[in-house]
Design a binder for these strands. Structure first.
Length: 215
DNA sequence: ATCCCGAGGG
DNA sequence: CCCTCTGGAT
């Protein structure tokens, strides 16, 4: 599907982005409960914002049991800055209740179970599995991963599931989680949707899009 | 103005 | 496929 060398892509992106030491740009929660809630909250907002509101949220509601009984409007107030606060408040409380009722109070560690929780899709489930359970089951394809992959020429598909199939075929499993973070970061900072900074991209020489984007 | 590591529903 | 939900940062 591609003649791009995965190791070259990896090492160049690694040299550019330090995934482990960017404190405010990535969620750094350890237990499954915190990871699940923080990841649901992170939609359409920044990780800095999520880190802020979860400090208070987790102090007041330290586990699934506590959050499952939290008053909706209190949760709404606490998470308000993250946006979509009504939907998110409803989802994280309902998800906690479902974890209590159907999973004996433990956040499930299987994709099929996680996706059943309200507010949790494949993207969120992938992150929870990777961060909280060290179970990397695939590459979560969001708009950034899709755009970067298509421009590089790693895939010609547009369907996220098929893109994922192409990516997992190219990259060794031990790099899947890293690829996810690197592509998303690159997509945000350099390979943006509107005006990609190809002149500032260290992948430009092997990128299909950059070579056709030259002016 | 425009964008942000989504999910659910029509 | 489309739309909606939302505030904050830049």
């Amino acid at each position: 599907m591609t003649d791009l060398d995965p190791n070259t892509i990896l090492s160049r992106l690694r040299s550019r982005y330090d995934l482990l030491n960017s404190r405010d740009e990535f969620l750094h929660f350890k237990n499954p409960y915190e990871t699940l809630i923080a990841t649901i909250l992170s939609a359409q907002t920044t990780d800095r914002c999520v880190n802020m509101v979860t400090r208070e949220l987790f102090m007041k509601y330290p586990d699934v049991a506590a959050l499952s009984e939290a008053p909706v409007q209190d949760v709404e107030k606490l998470i308000h800055p993250t946006g979509f606060f009504r939907t998110k408040a409803r989802n994280i409380i309902a998800a906690s209740q479902m974890v209590m009722k159907e999973f004996d109070g433990r956040v499930p560690d299987e994709m099929d179970d996680l996706v059943r929780l309200p507010g949790v899709g494949r993207k969120t489930a992938n992150i929870v599995l990777d961060h909280a359970f060290s179970k990397t089951v695939g590459i979560a394809v969001d708009t950034h991963v899709r755009r970067v992959s298509m421009r590089l020429g790693l895939t010609d598909e547009s369907d996220p599931d098929r893109i994922e199939m192409d990516l997992v075929r190219v990259f060794p499993k031990e790099f899947w989680a890293e690829i996810n973070g690197l592509f998303i970061l690159h997509g945000r900072r350099v390979c943006t949707a509107r005006h990609p900074a190809c002149d500032n991209c260290n992948l430009a020489d092997l990128c299909r899009y950059a070579s056709s984007n030259k002016m």
